[in-house]
Design a protein around this nucleic acid. Sequence first.
DNA 1: TCAAAAGTGTTTGGGTTACACCCATGA
DNA 2: TCATGGGTGTAACCCAAACACTTTTGA
Lengths: 238, 238
Amino acid sequence: MDLVDQFFYAAFTVDSVVFGFDEGDLKILLIKRGEEPFTGKWALPGYFVKKTETLDNAAERVLEELTGLKNVYLEQVRSFGKVDRHPAGRVITCGYFALIKISDYKIQPGSTGLAKRAEWHSYKEIGELAFDHNEVIAYAFRMLKRRVRTQPIGFELLPPKFTLTQLQHLYEAILLSDESPENNKLDKRNFRKKILSMNLLVDLNEYQEGVAHRPAKLYRFDKEKYRELENAGFSYEL
Amino acid sequence: MDLVDQFFYAAFTVDSVVFGFDEGDLKILLIKRGEEPFTGKWALPGYFVKKTETLDNAAERVLEELTGLKNVYLEQVRSFGKVDRHPAGRVITCGYFALIKISDYKIQPGSTGLAKRAEWHSYKEIGELAFDHNEVIAYAFRMLKRRVRTQPIGFELLPPKFTLTQLQHLYEAILLSDESPENNKLDKRNFRKKILSMNLLVDLNEYQEGVAHRPAKLYRFDKEKYRELENAGFSYEL
DNA sequence: TCAAAAGTGTTTGGGTTACACCCATGA
DNA sequence: TCATGGGTGTAACCCAAACACTTTTGA
């Protein structure tokens, strides 16, 4: 029996878990499927990989086609290969994850018909999704948690000018999301001490406006300084 | 155009990076290929995934068929999907990794002819391998490094009775393998203090024999205690 | 008696934790 | 004037790092 007949029977898809942060809430971008299987169900944006593209390329292309998101940094999570995970045949999927600032992007379901809608869903309120997508999300979230502690990706989720409290809420949302209900806050003073001691934030000498309390100072993330430190062998750790 | 015609064109392989530890040296199990492509080249043990098995199952089966290794705990690393990585067509591979005690297993190349030989190669002396297997190893090694610091897998690599110095050498081989040539040793006293303070080792009150120096005490790893602590929410960290 | 590895404690500094009150603003 | 979140410092503790000499064995 020829190798090609015997083993070239499978299809590959890519599914992206795009995390966003907005109004103190961690969210995931989902599409409402307009095609079989699982028509009408919420799912991760994902589709088949073409012959001429790498997995990474496919993940980018498919994400844009289904949601309009472009120039998003996607990272591979892992692959999922249960035998019957797709009714059309043997389909193995590769999960990707990304982290973006919701306000920077416009979501727009593509014209292919696969995505009837594309919307942000609060991470805490995600129900049962199509395929094994809940499992994909679980792995992606573990990865996000690890990343956020060892790389300064948290800043990517906030506006260019942000307050220390916004930053703290972001970390709390990601790091403490599944902790016991007590203990779900970081200590304000210690958090500030630690973040500021890294010297990666620039005090803009500007303040919030129009808030009904003492306005907070605004900071920005100093990307250049981070690169320097990184090259010098220092490593970030929250 | 039908979905099946359009997208079900690919094959899947699994490739395993099996780390072993012996005589103070970190090793990887390689096969010498007896089939095209890359006949005669060293490669990771790997082959095609069948229709009826999951990726995990395939990794186990293939590893056994090619090397005789059985009941090895394999974990997924990630997938590799460059378009031209396999000359026979579109083949995406999923990398796996495992960690075993070399002396516990017998290596025996299978009868399929794919593996002409199966041998341990010192991690530091691995040359250019078939396909993109050097890349697979690079990712697996990063994973190993992370694992060894957060889970007590190091003990799996040593004989049931081991000395603290053996354990230390093991950690040095994994954690410091690519550090600057100075600084490639852990501090003996600090290492012992830390390891013993975790209370995961049982002092066997036995000693090495026949060594030309003061014989070292033998310890074993207390798996039960580890499970207890794990369940109680404690986490291991070297 | 020599070589080779085993074994052992203390000090120091830096980092993490815990903790409570006043401040500036808009309503 | 009140409610709301912004902003600040210190003391206690713990952990990591640095560091050198004695012991036991076989050759």
